[in-house]
Nucleic acid binder design. Structure first.
Length: 193
DNA sequence: ATACCGATTAACT
DNA sequence: GTTAATCGGTATA
């Protein structure tokens, strides 16, 4: 299968993109190890009007500046001083939309991912664990997802509309009315082929 | 220079 | 269900 093209990321509707990323494959070649997984959970962050977004109100700093790059860029930041959270930037340059990858179903490179996670069991539910398994760190913020180090490829997996669950985003209670927006999408990994 | 806090996780009860 | 861990980013001065 092939890398998602630039045109996929440049589209304007970040919520649609978040839904469409479910079932696609993340490929990481970080550390010369190929590790992959199928995306099972995402959240959309809709730019300067979204109180849950780091870019709310047009905020643009050394960290959040990455979100203002063109669609198809990786935005990685440190949360709670410990967790590296991986996001996919969408929309054209200067419009800071992004999709947070919250969970994946591990596919290949299982032993490498286990070793990175430092556990005999391999769990990749939660944005911090996904990044850790794939070797993604804040140093990767700003890299192009059309290069070969880290990218997303189309799987062709067809997921019935009814199998995709929708709900409010996790951990954004501070966002007032925007905390209730149905911008989270996920599936049960057992529904994957 | 200083103070506050988070798009979380794992290990508890 | 609860809570400690942990530190860079951000705002304020």
């Amino acid at each position: 299968m092939s890398k998602l093209p630039r045109s996929f990321y440049l589209r304007g509707d970040v919520v649609t993109i978040a839904r469409e990323l479910i079932g696609q494959r993340i490929v990481s070649n970080i550390g010369d190890e190929r590790t992959t997984g199928i995306i099972t959970e995402t959240e959309a962050y809709a730019g300067i009007d979204d109180r849950a977004s780091h870019a709310y109100g047009g905020r643009r700093t050394a960290r959040t500046g990455t979100m203002y790059l063109q669609g198809g860029t990786a935005y990685v930041y440190l949360c709670y001083g410990i967790h590296h959270l991986f996001n996919v930037v969408t929309h054209e340059a200067d419009v800071p939309h992004a999709v947070l990858i919250r969970a994946m179903h591990p596919e290949s490179g299982l032993e490498v991912m286990k070793a990175r996670r430092g556990s005999t069991k391999l769990t990749t539910n939660g944005p911090g664990t996904v990044s850790q398994a794939l070797g993604i760190r804040t140093t990767h913020s700003g890299i192009d997802l059309l290069d070969d180090l880290l990218y997303i490829e189309r799987t062709g997996i067809r997921i019935p509309e009814n199998d995709i669950r929708t709900g409010p985003r996790i951990g954004v209670d501070y966002a007032g009315p925007d905390a209730a927006l149905p911008y989270r999408f996920h599936i049960d990994p057992r529904q994957l082929p």
